[in-house]
Design a protein around this nucleic acid. Structure first.
Lengths: 233, 233
DNA sequence: TGCTAATATCGTCACGAGGTCTATAAGTGG
DNA sequence: CCACTTATAGACCTCGTGACGATATTAGCA
């Protein structure tokens, strides 16, 4: 497969995250073919002529894992010459946020299997040495930083939660995505201050029942302006 | 110029900003050839086989405008099928910050001329209708948002200032880049609080002389953590 | 029925960042 | 000597938010 260097191969890869079993998980596929045969990798593949990069990312995610209809945002484009041993491949990477309880994994033809892997464990493993195919270790680290930032900045957590959830569940998503424990009461006060949560009943918990919330608007919205050295009168 | 759709043409474009004559300016080139002949556009061009996208952005900026050795950061990749009438061209766009007093413009072979254009006026013109070639109107709007965010987030203003500057000059860069007036005393207190400014003499101003500052470190650094719902003990 | 444990929710305090405003310092030109 | 300009400095106040304890509501159990 020789490629005209003026027209390199272009691909889209996806770092998809979900909150499952109390931890943040990333969606990986096991490669069926060379190169990196049997390695784990981020789902992704070549751009088709009739689609945008975002459409390619959605299609590859659907084809390789069965996951569709999720929040997606462009991350960055990676263009190092040696990132693919087959030749020049430029990869535009996307961040996807998935409600893990809503989707079921169906590995596609290019993948032996698709699976959620705990993010923290995987990142710790990567710190000790290469794990994923291609430059996907680096891409995953990049995606993780963006995930943390995105959660603090916009109300995108609804993408990773069922329709109805408790304040604890919301907090757990934030704690897992940002990688830090939060004071429950402070988190609660601030989350309610966003003005995007609506009450939707109660749920027994083994202790005092928890209020159930839903997102009043399932559209991305800036949660907090960075309010530095505000304007003069 | 027919292109294999599986291997589209890949280009890098640059939105370069500088603070000149009291206003934020963006660097444009006037196109010499079709399509969009004689239109103003962002500097940019096709990726060479032996370079990364960032290297291509630097090279195109240097070749078309004479500007080199500037702060550069990837913005986003645009892949709409119809963004170039010649066929499928995917453009990876970069944000560049330039010290306008340090560089001199030298238009290259692909450009009739290169010029700084006042950002606010240009954006107002864009609001009234298409102005730049291709989808560069949209890319410029995207770049402007990133510029504002970047200034608040990291100490990248040194890229747009001479070695030595006064607090007023620094504030003017922020006001022009973010598009808002700041209370001088607040700005001063907070800028000094960053801990990255060092005093370097005085300069007469027509009133009380201004303290001259320089950046103690000319490396990107986070200025303010987003401190929301901090961790529990 | 009491007691404890567990979980969620609520109230309060303190501190610091940042806004507003006023005062002072140090030049220029009448 | 005074008015004017520009930069710098201090005082004060509000508000967001981190820290911590108190209260509400269930289950389990003797």
């Amino acid at each position: 497969m020789v490629s005209d260097p003026a027209h390199p191969k272009v691909a889209a890869d996806v770092a998809a995250f979900a909150f499952l079993e109390g931890a943040m998980q990333v969606l990986l596929v096991r490669r069926r073919y060379e190169p990196y045969e049997s390695y784990w990798a981020l789902p992704g593949g070549g751009l088709h002529p009739d689609e945008t990069l975002e459409q390619a990312a959605e299609r590859e995610l659907r084809e390789e894992t069965g996951v569709s209809d999720v929040f997606m945002e462009q991350l960055a484009t990676f263009s190092e010459q040696d990132r693919d041993p087959r030749g020049r491949v430029i990869s535009c990477c996307y961040l996807a946020l998935v409600d893990g309880g809503r989707v079921s994994l169906r590995p596609g033809s290019d993948a032996r299997e698709a699976a959620w892997r705990p993010l923290e464990e995987l990142l710790a493993e990567i710190d000790r040495g290469p794990v994923l195919a291609f430059d996907h270790d680096r891409i995953l680290q990049y995606a993780r930083r963006r995930l943390a930032y995105k959660l603090e900045y916009q109300n995108v957590a609804w993408s990773m939660l069922p329709e109805r959830f408790t304040m604890s569940e919301l907090r757990h998503v934030y704690e897992a995505g940002i990688g830090r424990a939060f004071e429950p009461n402070n988190f609660r006060r601030i989350a309610l201050g966003w003005g995007v949560l609506a009450e939707a009943g109660e749920r027994p918990t083994g202790g005092r029942p928890a209020t159930i919330y839903r997102f009043a608007e399932r559209e991305p919205r800036i949660l907090a302006e960075s309010a530095r050295y505000r304007r003069a009168t």
